[in-house]
Design a protein around this nucleic acid. Sequence first.
DNA 1: TGTCATTCAATGACGTGTCATATAAGTTGT
DNA 2: ACAACTTATATGACACGTCATTGAATGACA
Lengths: 127, 127
Amino acid sequence: MAKPQDRQLVEQWRSIQTTYFHTAGALERALESKFSIGLTEFEILDLVAESTDAACRMKQLGERTPMTQSAMSKVVDRLDKAGLISRQSCADDRRSLFLELTDAGRALHRQAAIEHRALLRENLGKY
Amino acid sequence: MAKPQDRQLVEQWRSIQTTYFHTAGALERALESKFSIGLTEFEILDLVAESTDAACRMKQLGERTPMTQSAMSKVVDRLDKAGLISRQSCADDRRSLFLELTDAGRALHRQAAIEHRALLRENLGKY
DNA sequence: TGTCATTCAATGACGTGTCATATAAGTTGT
DNA sequence: ACAACTTATATGACACGTCATTGAATGACA
């Protein structure tokens, strides 16, 4: 009871939580106020932007983030409606969707990424 | 553009996110299925349980978690309704609330903490 | 080819977190 | 003792994530 290893484990976990919450909060607020997008929206843009291959991506993207399939679907939907991304059905498997940044999406991502990196630099390791 | 330090920063951030989401998810599911409480509920129980001093605590608790004041209020409300915690107004400052585990709360926390620590041990450093 | 199982994405019901605000109590200065 | 300000908690509107399910396309195999 109250084993020291347990205490250390709990401390470690709380430290991760703190870092995560504060950093995510800072990112959220900055992206929302300056670019009118949420953090999850940005993260999808970021993943699509750095994706080089032209595979059917919706699925693969899911493998690169801890987001749920359901969450991804909704975020992508919002991005689509905002005109930042386009969804095109895949020729070889019509269940899949191919994602692509629009020009607006690419432009916004370029700006937002600068802010994003700066905030990461500022926040990570701060707590 | 695509500076290597930026890449590293992003990697670090994603790693934190992954650890956070997977661990929190595992905790959530286990606590919910075995004890019918959410992770945030457990975290409040945990904080109250380890709190030694008899100060008016609602406020102080807020300083020990990244949770919002609003979120805390609602979580404590649920815990109260579930009969796991009791809120008593402070004599010296009637705005403040003094939190205390009920017997049921203490019993549940004792069991749940074992599960919680085990899952932390299993998950942290896994990703 | 027809059936059954599997996979990809979207959706609806629901819970919980956030922001802004309300309520109530305490504090300060006059 | 009265305003004006500050602090502690609660609450309502709203947004977003989750789970379970659906719809549609594919695969496997007799």
